[in-house]
Every structure is written in structure tokens, then in C-alpha cells.
């Protein structure tokens, strides 16, 4: 079974969200998603300063097997991207919830947080897809 930390929030497109408490969130893909993707070889991230809306395509993860879009799980401004991924895309596989993070958003609508899944709901979703 894949690792689903209880302190994080999730969306059905397999991104995780960490609410930082200062109006920003950190976003990455789940352990389940990286396992499905296989070895990640490139990550294309949005530009810092870009405005994204919930559900927008905001990047691409390319694994040896397939290309997969990254969707913005919330709306806001991109304030930081994980530049480590340029040279070490394999961090997405080895450490999806920490060093393998993708980008940080400054939220434009805090209410959207209510739409996210908790760990239990995300776990149920993964099991229903299996």
C-alpha cells in the first residue's frame, strides 16, 4: 500500500497539498502517483509569478513510461518552484512528499481548501481505482 500522510490534503488527480498556514500551500504528487508513473526523467514546472486557476494544467511530469499533466489543485500565484527537480527529477520517486515537491502557491481563494480530500478520502479513492 502506498504512503498517504495524514497531515496533507489531496485531490483526485493525485496531487498532494500542504497548507503552510501563511496563506501559501506546497504541492507535489503522491506516492501512489509516482509509483504509477515509474522513473521520472523530466519535470516541467510553471513560471514563478504565474497565476493559475484550480484545475489548470500547470506542468508536465515525464517518466520513462508516459507524460502526465500536473493540475493546479487550487487557484493562486506561483511563488516558488522546486529547482532541484531540474537536475534531480528522480526526487519525485524517492521522496514525493518532501524533496520531490513541485511548486508553492499563494492562494487567491482560501475557500477552495474546503474542496480538498483528506488522507482517508484519498486512500478510498486510490483503492477504488485499483
Amino acid at each position: 500500500m502506498s504512503n498517504i500522510p495524514s497531515e496533507l490534503k489531496y485531490v483526485a488527480s493525485h496531487e498532494w497539498i500542504r497548507v503552510e498556514g501563511d496563506g501559501t500551500v506546497t504541492i507535489g504528487v503522491t506516492d501512489h502517483a509516482q509509483d504509477l508513473l515509474g522513473d521520472v526523467v523530466f519535470v516541467e514546472l510553471p513560471e514563478v509569478g504565474a497565476e493559475v486557476a484550480m484545475g489548470d494544467e500547470s506542468g508536465v511530469v515525464e517518466s520513462v513510461k508516459a507524460a502526465s499533466d500536473i493540475y493546479a489543485p487550487l487557484s493562486g500565484e506561483v511563488v516558488e518552484v522546486n529547482e532541484e527537480l531540474e537536475d534531480s527529477p528522480e526526487l519525485v520517486n524517492s521522496d514525493p512528499y518532501a524533496d520531490g515537491w513541485f511548486f508553492k502557491l499563494k492562494l487567491s481563494d482560501q475557500d477552495e481548501l474546503n474542496e480538498l480530500l483528506d488522507a482517508e478520502a484519498y486512500n478510498d479513492l486510490c483503492e477504488s481505482e485499483a
Binding site: 515509474g38 522513473d39 526523467v41 520513462v64 513510461k65 528522480e90 520517486n93
Partner: peptide
Amino acid sequence: PIHYGSQV
């Protein structure tokens, strides 16, 4: 088997 952990 598709892989045993990492294809790369």
C-alpha cells in the same frame, strides 16, 4: 515483471 523497483 515490468520492473523490480526502478526501470532506469
